[in-house]
């Protein structure tokens, strides 16, 4: 009786692009968490010595809450894009990525409003300086995430969907979720507990 060589089992290692993106995302989160830690520590120090952190009423919760809601919605649309990429569903994938980019732009617009509304001077003191350092870093992270998604969108338009591209969208999605988590920290630490 002849034996038949069976094909090798499919590799089960985690996908390269996703693993690399997760590691890089972890590093970015560490940097942002360290920034927030400095913010919290300095605010605690100011309060312990009886100093005012922000002037009463200067930081409004409304726009910050809108940003939180916008970003939570964007988490859904990013996952929609990831699923569409997995299913090789080009129209849904493109719409989902486009909506997500729009949400990102809306958040940047809302931050612009917050900056105008608060009218902090960067050289106003520790509170103002750290306010700009933390929120500015977040905006930079968000813009990077939008660029990642934009690249994925362009690739989806120019070539066929496939396993690799699905991994690319998955990686960008993981980064985006981390950005939302970082904004949750900003929302709670800067805008809620002020």
């Amino acid at each position: 009786m002849r034996t038949t060589a069976l094909p090798a089992a499919e590799a089960t290692r985690p996908r390269t692009v996703v693993v690399g993106a997760l590691l890089a995302t972890g590093a970015v989160f560490m940097a942002f968490a360290a920034l927030v830690a400095v913010y919290v520590q300095q605010r605690q120090l100011a309060r312990a010595t009886g100093q005012e952190w922000f002037p009463e009423g200067s930081v409004e919760l409304g726009p910050a809450g809108m940003m939180m809601m916008t970003l939570v919605l964007s988490m859904v649309t990013v996952q929609w894009a990831v699923q569409a990429a997995r299913d090789e569903d080009r129209p849904h994938g493109f719409i989902a990525l486009g909506v997500t980019l729009m949400f990102g732009a809306a958040v940047i617009n809302q931050f612009w409003f917050v900056y105008t509304d608060t009218a902090f001077a960067i050289d106003g003191g520790r509170a103002e300086l750290l306010f700009y350092a933390v929120t500015g870093s977040f905006i930079a992270m968000l813009i990077f995430g939008m660029a990642m998604l934009a690249v994925t969108t362009i690739r989806s338009l120019m070539g066929p969907f496939g396993r690799d591209l699905a991994h690319g969208v998955q990686a960008a999605g993981a980064y985006w979720h981390m950005c939302v988590l970082c904004y949750f920290l900003v929302w709670y630490v800067i805008f809620i507990t002020k």
Binding site: V28, F29, M30, A31, F32, A34, L35, V38, A133, S137
Partner: peptide, 8 residues
């Protein structure tokens, strides 16, 4: 990354 945050 923590040192990068310091630099920022």
């Amino acid at each position: 990354p923590v040192a990068v945050a310091n630099l920022v």
